[in-house]
Each structure stands twice: as C-alpha cells, then as structure tokens.
Simulated assay, not measured.
Amino acid sequence: MTAADVSLGRALVEEATKKSGLIWVRGSGPARALWHVWHEGAALLVGDGPGEQPLSAGLDAGGTAEVTVRSKDKGGRLVAWTAAVAVLEPHSQEWEAAVAELRGKRLNAPDAERMTERWARECRVLRLTPGASRTELPETSLAAAPLPTGATTRHPAPAALPRLLLKRRGKKR
C-alpha cells in the first residue's frame, strides 16, 4: 500500500464519517447505530447514561472498535474502519473540547442547560480514532435481528382495517 493509498483512505474515512448522521459501532457486543460528531480526526460519542444512547458493549479505554459508516443518501455501507477507543476523563481539556462539539449536535435534550454536568456525572464520552487501515466491506448484508427492547409494540392489524382502507380509497375517486 502506497502513501497515496493511505492518504486517500484516511480522507475517505473522514469525509464519510463527517457526513453520516449515524455510525455503526461494534465493541465486543452487537453493533449499535450511534449518533456522533467528527472533531479533530476522530468520532466523538456520548452515552451510557439516563436519556442518552446506549453504547456498544466492550468500548473500553485502550480497546478497539469496528466502525461502519453508512451513506446519508442511500443508507448503504460506504466504508468500515478499526478505531482505537479512548474514554475521556470528565472535565479534562480533551473532554471539555469534545463536549463543546457534542453539545451543539445533541437534539431534544431534556435538560439543555445542565446537560454537560449530567454527562460528567452519569455518562461516558468516547473518542474513536481511526487506525492506519480500512476494513474491507463484506459481500453479504450482515443483517441482524433488532436488539430486544421494551419499545416494540407489535400486534396484528384489526380484521376490519383492510375494508376501512379500501372503502376510503373508493370514496376519493
């Protein structure tokens, strides 16, 4: 691999990750779709606290994670890369810089005024720094069953619903 290939690979990782709203991150557990902010050559994440996104298991300081970036337009995989995981210490200089970026992108926070104090107390802020090489994308879909959650309410459709929908469609004509 030439130096030009490495530079192009880094540029692809950076641009794709910057533009994507979600990245799929896998530590030692299943991959999770996580919102992030790209800042100073790394993806920044906040989570594992009340009201915040659950982070993938195994994202510990000094560990690695597999990151897959999707296309914002089509939703398909663009690039996959291996990241070095760093857990930022609350109120350190790195943590303050990361939180300043994350705070601006956090939508619908219930406590926007006290959000950073809550993050310092109850959450983890991670920095995922790309390694020197990219991971080859697999040929298969890697589709997996959704993770269990109490938020799913799957019930059969009422028997009369198709009749009601067809009746409305007929009246509009």
Rank of each mutant, 00 (worst) to 15 (best):
W38R: 13
G104L: 15
S92C: 05
G51Y: 11
M1H: 15
K74T: 07
L44V: 11
E52C: 10
R173Y: 04
L107E: 14
L164S: 11
P138N: 05
D111S: 15
S28N: 04
L107S: 13
K105M: 02
H39Q: 10
W35E: 04
L161Q: 15
P158R: 15
P156R: 09
R124L: 02
P148C: 13
R163G: 09
D60C: 13
E89M: 06
P110H: 09
V79R: 04
P54Q: 10
G76Q: 12
T82V: 08
R70T: 12
G63A: 03
L12Y: 01
H36C: 00
S133L: 08
T140K: 12
G29L: 00
E113Q: 14
D48F: 02
T82H: 09
W95I: 12
S56T: 04
R26T: 03
P162L: 03
R32M: 07
P50R: 15
V125F: 02
T129W: 01
E66Y: 09
L164W: 01
A112N: 08
A98F: 01
P50G: 12
E122R: 13
A151K: 08
K105N: 07
T64L: 05
P138L: 05
T68G: 00
L137Q: 07
R10F: 01
L161I: 13
L128K: 08
R10I: 00
A3F: 11
L126S: 05
S71Y: 07
T149N: 02
C123S: 13
E14Q: 11
L165K: 15
S71R: 11
A43I: 03
R118Y: 07
A4Q: 11
N108A: 04
R154A: 09
T68M: 05
E14S: 09
T2Y: 10
P50V: 14
R118I: 05
A97H: 15
V37F: 11
R32S: 12
E40Y: 12
A151W: 06
P156F: 07
T2M: 07
R121M: 04
V125S: 13
V87N: 06
V67D: 01
G104Y: 09
V67H: 01
D5H: 07
V85S: 06
T68E: 00
A11E: 02
E139V: 11
V6N: 05
L44C: 03
E15N: 01
K72W: 01
G131E: 01
G63C: 00
V87T: 14
V25Q: 06
T153D: 14
V87L: 10
E113S: 13
L137A: 14
K72N: 09
P110D: 15
R173C: 03
R103I: 11
G170F: 12
A97M: 10
L88M: 03
T135S: 09
G21S: 10
K105V: 08
L78W: 07
V99N: 07
H36I: 02
A84W: 13
E117R: 14
